[in-house]
Design a protein around this nucleic acid. Structure first.
Lengths: 190, 190
DNA sequence: ACCTGAACACCGTTCAAGT
DNA sequence: ACCTGAACACCGTTCAAGT
C-alpha cells in the first residue's frame, strides 16, 4: 500500500476519533450516538463504518491514541537524570490530558466502558502499561536519590492510582483542586 | 394512601432495582437494557414503567438506595466516642458495598453516568453528602485525639477520595489489594 | 477505494386492553 | 391500581449504488 493513502486513512480515522471525543465529552460514551458523531464530523454513517468496523473499535482507537501520554516528553527528563518527584509527575500527567483536549469525564467514561467490554479492557491495559513504563523511566532518578530507595513499581502504582482517583473524584465531586485532594489523602495514609 | 399498598409498591421498586443492579454489574449501565431487566426480574416492560417513569429515574432510585451507606452502622462507634482511624473507616465503607452486593464496577458505572446526566448527578451529590456527614460523625473521636487535630472535613474528603480512587483503580487495574494501593499512594503524598 | 443514505434489527417508551 | 405485550420512534449497522 502506498504511504500517502495510509497516512490519508490515518488522518480520516483521527478526524472521526476527535469528533467522537467531543461527543463523548458532552454525552458520555454510550449516549454519544453514531448519528451525533456523523453530525459532529460532517461525514456520513457509511464513512465511519468504512474507517472503523464498529463503535467498539472506534472506542479502542481512542483509548490507544488519546488516553496514552507522549512517552518521549514524559521520559526525557528521566533519561537526562533530572529528578522529578512523584507529585510533579502526577501533575505532569494531569496537565498532559488537559493539553490533549481529553477533558474531565472522558477517561472515566472509558474506564466504565472497559469494565464491561473485554476487548476495550485489553486495549486500556496496553495503553496503561505504556504510561507505567514511561513513568518508571521518569521517576528513576528521584527513586535513586531517596535515602531508602523505594521500589519503582510501587511509586508508579501510587502515581497511577492518584491520577485515576483524582480524575474520578473531580468528576463526581466538583471544585476540589489537586492540592486539597492530596492533603485529604495524606491524612488517611500518613 | 394505605400503608400496606405503599410498602408493597416499595417492595416492587426494590425488586426491580435489584434485578437492574445485577444487569448493570454484568453489562454496564447503558448496555443493561430494559429487556435485560424484564428478563432478570421476571416482570414485563409495562411493570417497570408503572413503577419508574423511565430508566433515568430507576438509576436515581438505585443511587439513592444502594450507593449510600447504612448511616446508623457507620455513626454508631463515633457516637459512643470510640476511635476509628481513617484507614479503618475506608475499609468499613468498602466492606459495606461488598455486603450490599454492590460489586466492583457498579459504582464506577454510576459515576460515569452521573457525569453526563445532571439529575443523576444531583441524586449522587445528595447520596454522597449523606455518606460524608456519617463519616464526619464516625471520624470525630479520632480527629479529637490527634496531637494536632486535623479539620474533619479534610479527613472525610481524604477517605472519600481514596474510596473512589481504589474502586476505580481496582476496576481498571485488577489484582491490587487495598494495602498495596495505599502503600503506593503513601509514597506520592508522604 | 471510499463514500452516501436508505433499510433492517433492536432498545426505550407508550398505551389500549386486561385483571 | 397495576400489569401485559404489541406498537412506535430512534440507534447501531449493513449494503446497493455512486464517485
Amino acid at each position: 500500500m502506498p504511504k500517502v493513502s495510509d497516512s490519508y486513512r490515518e488522518a480520516r480515522r483521527d478526524e472521526i476519533a476527535r469528533a467522537a471525543l467531543r461527543c463523548i465529552e458532552r454525552s458520555g460514551f454510550s449516549d454519544a450516538t453514531i448519528a451525533d458523531i456523523v453530525r459532529e464530523s460532517g461525514l456520513s454513517a457509511g464513512a465511519i463504518y468504512s474507517n472503523f468496523t464498529n463503535k467498539a473499535e472506534l472506542a479502542r482507537y481512542i483509548v490507544a491514541h488519546f488516553l496514552g501520554v507522549r512517552r518521549e516528553e514524559l521520559e526525557a527528563a528521566g533519561r537526562r537524570g533530572e529528578i522529578r518527584s512523584p507529585r510533579e509527575l502526577l501533575l505532569f500527567m494531569l496537565a498532559a490530558y488537559q493539553d490533549a483536549d481529553v477533558h474531565g469525564a472522558v477517561p472515566l467514561q472509558f474506564w466504565a466502558a472497559a469494565a464491561v467490554d473485554p476487548q476495550l479492557r485489553a486495549q486500556l491495559d496496553e495503553t496503561i502499561d505504556g504510561i507505567r513504563s514511561s513513568l518508571a523511566v521518569a521517576i528513576a532518578p528521584w527513586a535513586a536519590a531517596q535515602p531508602e530507595p523505594p521500589e519503582v513499581a510501587r511509586v508508579v502504582r501510587g502515581i497511577m492510582g492518584l491520577a485515576q482517583g483524582y480524575i474520578t473524584f473531580v468528576t463526581v465531586t466538583q471544585g476540589v483542586d489537586l492540592d486539597e485532594y492530596l492533603a485529604g489523602v495524606g491524612l488517611v495514609v500518613g
